[in-house]
């Protein structure tokens, strides 16, 4: 390397390092440091795991954590089950212009703010909302029914928000599966089920994994949907973090919560990649 191109290399390296060090690495180290410091007086702290102990000793906190995790896993499974047939339809059963149109229609929610989407569900599901009125009109129910403010509403909203992140990678991987392989499967006497299991799903695994990872992460870190669509008892872990930081001003406990959420989401991503023998670079760096 000449001196000149070495200079160019360092000039290119600088913005990357500045960005990663000051906005990603140091803040997360800082977050961890705050999470292991306990307040013992005004601007006096000592190092300890007290904040984590608070988390494990207070049932409200760890139950909310577990609830958030389970509901996110459930959202991920639901999104996969609902999204897979649609992705398969777009990738394998349509051609040309129809295909492009359907694919672009799947992307529409991405172009609209999550707030607007959630607002739409509020209009649909509330007691005076469209669904309740429609069902009264058709005579299915006698009086107004509140569909909002429960876990079901949260699931509907979460699936809606994240389904496109499942469908896009699925369509991409299914698209690359040669139709003749499926035909060959039928010629060799396979049933619809066995072909799905032996040919289609193994081929689509990279898409399934990257879709699931993104959907799980988005659900876990979601704040808007559970807060706006959920009821008084439907706590979400990000809501607890917000309360500790902004309302209670207890940054030490809030940081511990944040770190636990980060640990959970990283673990699941790591396990997902390990189980399917994928690497982060190929899954995300599409």
């Amino acid at each position: 390397m000449t001196d000149r191109s070495k200079l160019g290399f360092y000039l290119l390296l600088m913005p990357l390092m500045l960005w990663l060090i000051t906005l990603i690495i140091l803040p997360h180290i800082g977050l961890f440091m705050v999470s292991i410091s306990e307040k013992i007086g005004v601007r006096e702290y000592e190092t300890g795991l007290g904040n984590y102990a608070v988390f494990f000793n207070e049932p409200l906190y760890w139950r909310t954590f577990a609830r958030t995790a389970f509901m996110s896993i459930f959202t991920t499974i639901l999104t996969l089950v609902l999204g897979f047939p649609v992705a398969y339809y777009i990738a394998k059963l349509t051609r040309g212009r129809t295909k492009t149109t359907l694919f672009l229609m799947c992307l529409i929610p991405f172009w609209v703010s999550e707030l607007v989407r959630t607002f739409g569900w509020m209009i649909l599901l509330r007691e005076t909302g469209v669904l309740s009125n429609f069902l009264q009109y058709t005579g299915v129910i006698g009086g107004p029914v509140e569909f909002l403010y429960n876990d079901g509403a949260i699931m509907v909203g979460l699936v809606y928000t994240s389904i496109l992140f499942m469908i896009v990678p699925l369509v991409t991987t299914l698209d690359s599966l040669d139709d003749s392989l499926i035909e060959a499967g039928y010629d060799l006497g396979g049933s619809g089920y066995s072909i799905m299991r032996e040919i289609v799903i193994p081929h689509a695994t990279p898409g399934i994994v990257s879709g699931c990872i993104v959907v799980f992460m988005l659900s876990l870190g979601n704040y808007l949907t559970p807060i706006l669509l959920g009821g008084k008892d439907s706590l979400w872990f990000t809501g607890l973090i917000y309360t500790q930081f902004i309302t209670r001003f207890n940054w030490e406990l809030g940081s511990a919560f944040g770190f636990l959420l980060l640990a959970l989401s990283s673990t699941i991503v790591f396990l997902g990649l390990k189980l399917s023998r994928q690497s982060l670079t190929e899954t995300m760096g599409r």
Partner: peptide, 16 residues
Amino acid sequence: PLIIPGVILGISILVF
């Protein structure tokens, strides 16, 4: 940054 939840990114920068 793709796999860090947005809320965490927010609080870590806030704290730092």
